[in-house]
Write a protein that binds this DNA or RNA. Structure first.
Lengths: 141, 141
DNA sequence: ATCCTTATTGATAACGAATATCAATATAGT
DNA sequence: ACTATATTGATATTCGTTATCAATAAGGAT
């Protein structure tokens, strides 16, 4: 099975774009992180490895990764985050609104019905975000 | 049953904030519109009714409406939209990551399984947010 | 009604994330 | 190695949103 680097190389090649050390490093850093990654985190890590890489290149490369299907971009609360799309298992969150505790879960049937909804509206599902807000057992007392 | 104006007045009073003609007008305009309303649409309408109201007041008031539970805010592709929250049936969102189109839906079974998940983790469900990201039919071509 | 404290307003400066510009450089096919 | 052109980093620019601030208004107390 192809890994992310091969996929990105192929993607670039098909569009007559080029495989560069900068793009390689940014992809490496991106793959090392998990969850919803803010652009500033990526920048910090990339900068540690190679301080000469400019912020514009980071933005440009992340856009390419999204186009290549390797990343998904989310904008919540004026903050842009990226998350891996390829070969990763998605999970949802149960969040206690009192103490902030987060529990991760997944529910196959919910995922299934999500696909139904998308089909009904002629959408191709790429990712989703579901957050349940409530109070955990400790905070109910 | 309380209407939105009473709720907003109560909310303001509890926080020692004040009921002003500007806030009244912005709420009126907001309630007349439907769906996901961009801030620029609100500004246009508000400006028609009273050209002296500044953009800052609009932003400030919309923030208050969100805090008061009367509006929900969405930020997608650098664009902020508001939608009514009170006396409106709950629904989830299907969002095209390419063109930003939003489709509202509800699925009783998904709601049901959410409750199952909460029960299993000893949470009391209070609210939730689910957003499905994908590409709509037009953007798939 | 009038007074008085303090929230609110509008104009505008400031901010910040994302993008455009551009000359210098690197890539990859020949 | 050569050449066409994609890419880069620095930086200017854009534009939505927020902060600042002096003038004004709201609303409780008298």
């Amino acid at each position: 099975m192809l890994n992310e680097f091969d996929i990105f190389k192929d993607f670039l090649h098909h569009l007559n774009l080029r495989w560069t050390p900068q793009r390689k490093l940014i992809l490496e850093v991106f793959l090392q992180l998990e969850g919803h990654i803010p652009i500033e985190d990526l920048h910090k890590r990339v900068h540690q490895q190679d301080p000469t890489i400019g912020i514009a290149t980071l933005y440009r490369t992340m856009k390419l990764l999204v186009d290549a299907g390797l990343a998904d971009v989310h904008t919540f609360n004026e903050k842009t985050t990226y998350e891996r799309l390829y070969k990763v298992r998605h999970h949802d969150h149960l969040i206690c609104t009192n103490c902030g505790k987060m529990v991760e879960f997944e529910h196959p049937l919910i995922e299934k019905y999500q696909l139904d909804v998308c089909e009904r509206h002629d959408f191709t599902l790429k990712s989703h975000r579901m957050e349940l807000f409530g109070t955990c057992r400790e905070c109910q007392k």
